[in-house]
Structures are given as structure tokens and as C-alpha cells.
Amino acid sequence: MSEHKIELSINGRRQRATVEGRMLLSDFLRVDAGYTGVHVGCEHGVCGACTVIVDGLAVRSCLMLAVQADRCKVTTVEGLAADENSLHPIQQAMRDEHALQCGFCTPGVVMTLAALTGGAEKPDAETLLASMSGHVCRCTGYQGIRRAILKLAGESEAKQP
């Protein structure tokens, strides 16, 4: 097995590790780094539960190797809110709109929406809704996720001059 030394930032903290070439980023984040908010639902890139933000982009961590994250900036759902006692606006909107039930797909949904709304450009509701085609939620029928998106998009539109 090939072994590789990697150094990356996870949720703002630098971390060094030695990983096998075949180690998935999802397994590295969960098992080695302890960020168990990364949920593995299908391991073949369809369900979206394992989505994290790598260098500003939403990425399925089950389709990326840990070694590929060398020198990258990774954010997991644990690192999204400003502090332990607050929620990121996406998380708050999802809570207000009852956008989750079992909560297994939730971290992935949150991370995709956070990646899309994290930059200077504020995507419209249609873009955010389209991005949800990459996430499977088996509990909610997407009702609350859709309401949360409409709320977020509405707020960002209202803020724009």
C-alpha cells in the first residue's frame, strides 16, 4: 500500500497525517480526524450526505481521496457555525422550517447550501433548489428544505440594493 504524508486545514485547524493512497476523504475525516458529522450514505456519490467544502467548493468526500486534499482547506458541518452556541444562517433556516427529521442527510444539504451562498455572489432560489437534486432525503419529502431555501434566497434578495 502506498502511504502519503498530507497537510491540510480542517475547520480552520492545520493537521498533518499519513494516509494510504486508497483512503477516502470521507473515512479520513470521520475516522482519523474525528469529524463524524460527515455522513456516509451511499459511498458512490449519489446521496450527497458526505458533502464537505474543499477550497470553497461543495465536494462529495466519498468520491475524493484523502491524499487529494493535501494542502486544501476543508470545512465540515462541525466548522460552519461561528461558535458552539450558534447556528450558521443555513442551519438556522433549516431549523426554523423543520427541514430535517432523522438528520442523516442534513450535514450534506447544509454544506452544499453553505458553499453556494458563501461567496460574494448570491444565487437565486432556483439555483439553490437545483443544487438539491444532488441530495437524497428519505424522511422529509424536501418540504422544509424547499421552504428554507426560499427563505434564504428571499432574505439575500431583500439585502441586495
Binding site: 469529524y35 463524524t36 458529522g37 458541518v77 426554523d96 438528520g103
Partner: peptide
């Protein structure tokens, strides 16, 4: 709002 949601939204559930 549900009591479960704070931990589940922040990846702090225990599956």
C-alpha cells in the same frame, strides 16, 4: 422547533 435539531444540524448527532 425540535429539540433534536441543534445537534443534528451541526453534525453532533451520535449515529
Amino acid at each position: 422547533p425540535r429539540k433534536e435539531d441543534a445537534r443534528l444540524l451541526t453534525g453532533r448527532g451520535t449515529f
